[in-house]
Design a protein around this nucleic acid. Structure first.
Lengths: 188, 188, 188, 188
DNA sequence: CATGAATGAGAGTTCATTCAT
DNA sequence: AATGAATGAACTCTCATTCAT
């Protein structure tokens, strides 16, 4: 009935995610994470060497989940439009599901090179995944296209995070819009 | 030869910008800002009521400069393509000039509603400026178009901030690319 | 129309009294006293060498006024009972008139020997005045009697300071009571 | 051999009493209390939420000890004179034992309503205890009598605190004197 | 005489981290 | 492995005092 070591590791990570993403890094205290996880303060340090390290691991897990999910969905898609759709939907749905955890998207460990590396690699991996889709369609300058597409999506993220009344319908509308704009350009 | 009161206000703001943007909010100490500005610690509090307030004023000034500059350039542009070009160039050049102050773009006062309001309004104002350009060209769903375009640019920002070898040429290339992609869509 | 130097000295002392007695020594700022007196902060230091000194001078003036008034009233009294009455009335009326300035009676400069000296001397002088009255009636152990009488009055001070609904009638009742008790003892 | 949690709480309270009463509230630093108690600065905050709170708890403990002791002694007294004697002796002995901690009697947290409440209640409780003694002897206006008696004692406190050469004999003399004066009035 | 901008020492408080149990 | 009491470095902000104008 007691938690295994691995389970405790994950429980702490869950609590860290919940609190960091809701309140921000500096505003979240180790004591709060411990309490939320139902362990003692000292226990946190048995699994993570520091607050920074805990934040980094949490971030890594988040990024990995995001990319694993996307990568999984892409293998089940066939046409180009369908793939773009999946990317857009996955991207915006991710933020939609996290719209109550807005802090996570604005705060990092900006002075920690290792953390910047983690972020940088995530973006790189994400863009590479999208770049592969572009290349499979023989699009030139595939990387620039990939970044532009991701950027469009990233910007709609703001609507989600700041608009209280944002619904799934609004989300679908943006998915369609982004794909069409990317494929055909603006219609004048 | 001595500073007027207004000058001192700005000198402190300059120092705050330099340090906050280089090291981040929490990592910058009031004592450092004072030293950098060549005044005593207490003097900072004669001009700004708190560290948070100082950060907010600095942010406001930054945002205002960005928008004033853009708005100024847009009035001197004629064709649609030219306007898009000016927006893209202004956006990316701004970050290019600040590529050594990367911290500023990742950290804020995420728990301070007033600060979030400042950020939100800036984004709103920026998008509205771009939306006006879209509308002047009678483009439907002008706001969604505006956000998508800004998003593309925003994403290229990452290249600038993370790529040490990024040059003005790379920048111009992205400006052209973004405008063309936005107008015509991806070419397959 | 402008204040003379002596007037300014007194105006500052008045403001100091008002604020110190309403808010306490540490809670009152020099800046507030200056503002209340309608002078600049630096001006306070032209008349008083430090915050402590200002507090001491204010206290001295207060004590002097109290004793001058009492001494004046006693010369106009004839019988013993009448004199005791004047003392009691003067004592309690003084606190009654100051019942909105309760801070002054609880806070001092407890670490400043000079201030303690000022307080000590005031008490001494007051008791001596009352002792003289006792001696003029040939009462033995005149000083112990004097202190006991002052003590009775001092304690009724608490009623005045803490009882919001305390009236002049209550005051007169206590004056009469104290004099009778002192002269005849408790009635059993 | 190590302190229990409760012991540490009391050790800090003891140190707080020693320093606050010797030097005053504002003149005593938390760092000094910690050092005197043999703990780290932060430890003080594990037991008391703020400097103010620490001062309040110390005051409460002091007051309680005073009243408990008195109440205990009164139950063992029989005649009226004996009871008055016990009150006078307890009151003056208390201050006699504390004659090196004079600061405590002049300084409080005058702006803190909660602290004023604590003080007010203590005085109230003390007077009530004495009032009960008066009533048990069927004395009219028992409360006014009680306050007068306490006032006499309170004033002799000054002799104790300010007279370096004050001895136990002086104290006993004042106890006797106060009781006789209260019972019989001044002898002319 | 008068001003008030500038100073900077100093204090209370927080909280990540440690370590004896 | 787990605890949580104890630590103490570090930081923001205050305010009496000074002095150039």
């Amino acid at each position: 009935m007691t938690s295994t070591s691995e389970q405790k590791h994950d429980i702490i990570l869950d609590s860290a995610f919940y609190l960091f993403s809701t309140k921000g890094f500096y505003e979240t205290k180790i004591a709060e994470i411990a309490e939320h996880a139902g362990v003692a303060k000292g226990t946190v340090y048995l699994y993570f060497s520091s607050k920074e390290e805990l934040f980094k691991e949490m971030t890594r897990r988040n990024f990995d989940e995001f990319l694993d999910g996307l990568s999984n969905e892409l293998t089940r898609s066939s046409s180009f439009a369908e793939k773009l759709n999946k990317i857009a939907d996955h991207h915006l749905s991710y933020f939609y599901n996290m719209r109550n955890h807005t802090r996570i998207f604005f705060q990092g460990l900006n002075n920690d090179p290792e953390f910047m590396e983690v972020m940088f690699h995530h973006i790189e991996n994400y863009v590479n995944l999208v770049t592969n889709v572009m290349e499979s369609e023989s699009i030139n300058e595939s990387k620039l296209h990939a970044k532009a597409f991701v950027g469009m999506l990233e910007n709609y993220k703001m609507d989600i995070l700041f608009t209280k009344s944002f619904t799934k319908d609004h989300l679908n509308q943006r998915v369609d819009f982004a794909v069409k704009l990317f494929m055909n350009g603006c219609k004048r």
